[in-house]
Design a protein around this nucleic acid. Structure first.
Lengths: 162, 162
DNA sequence: TTTTAATTTCAATATTTTCTGAAAATTCAA
DNA sequence: TTGAATTTTCAGAAAATATTGAAATTAAAA
């Protein structure tokens, strides 16, 4: 396989994965591009490689920085900003886990906590309470696991499989 | 808190969670509704509760069935179809894990496998190969873990936290 | 059969999300 | 300061996704 084709396949696969995970395609593609690039890239580079506008590149690069998976870099005597992605996949996974926990699991658990004090008695109330409680129990466990995961070493993850 | 309000909060929270996970809001809301309902529901019930059209209800119910988290039920002497959700949250988590693995991880791993035979030598080629390999290694471990997870008992998950 | 009830499909429409591009803001050098 | 280079912002446009509703299909009852 030619380099160019391989690159396109990787970027495209990463983009698909991202969009299945509520991350927009361009954001995932910029990330893919940075991942496979041996050098830091400028906004111009991204625009050209992915055929996207300046605004798009700027906004999605910022989002990647907010997720903590991309960093700015400066080069002496150059005014442009350069960007690099964390190349450590384990570190990447941990950051994503951490960020999603914060954005999704935590708010859900808060809602579930509130649902414990529903008034009334009937069947429906009972069912809602039961489900809320079960989801909460499960969610709390997932929460603990994610917290642990996001602090753990890669070796822990590996050992889990033995 | 009143029952109605609680119900709305639960459905809304579940809908949000779903839409962060690439599952459309209505589909998640129907699922939420079935989860907290003590009885099987008809399409009519869903339409009324969620203010959605018949077509929408039909399509999203079907999608839930494809995911394996909702089942059809029949009542004697009643021509209508009734629907129930799996109430076991652990079972639900396993099905989702299984389904997402099949739809997302497996295709990614296949692409990565292909990327191992890239022609050429330069820095860029080397970097792409390295990244693809790292992602693949990680992906394979995640794959094993998910396979195990989707066959495991709830107690395994619980024990993990000890 | 034929009729009626229930469900599915899908073209048209509505909504949401993403992207563009140019103006505004920022940053640094002269 | 001023001015050029660079980045950010955001209103409007485009694209993608979800929803409707009525016609077509299917399934059961008469």
């Amino acid at each position: 396989m030619k380099y160019r084709e391989a690159k396109e396949q990787f970027i495209s696969a990463w983009g698909n994965l991202g969009s299945n995970w509520g991350i927009n395609r361009t954001m995932a593609q910029i990330h893919a591009l940075l991942l496979i690039s041996p050098e830091a890239l400028t906004t111009e580079d991204m625009m050209e490689e992915l055929k996207i506008s300046r605004g798009n590149a700027s906004m999605n690069t910022r989002a990647l920085i907010d997720w903590g998976v991309v960093k700015k870099e400066n080069k002496l005597g150059d005014r442009k900003e350069y960007f690099v992605a964390t190349k450590d996949i384990w570190e990447l996974a941990r950051r994503i886990a951490q960020e999603r926990k914060k954005r999704e699991l935590d708010p859900l658990l808060e809602v579930l906590e509130n649902l414990q004090n529903i008034e009334g008695e009937g069947k429906q109330v009972a069912e809602l309470k039961t489900v809320a409680q079960r989801v909460q129990t499960f969610g709390k466990k997932a929460d603990k696991l994610l917290t642990f995961f996001s602090k753990a070493q890669y070796s822990w993850f590996t050992n889990l499989l033995k």
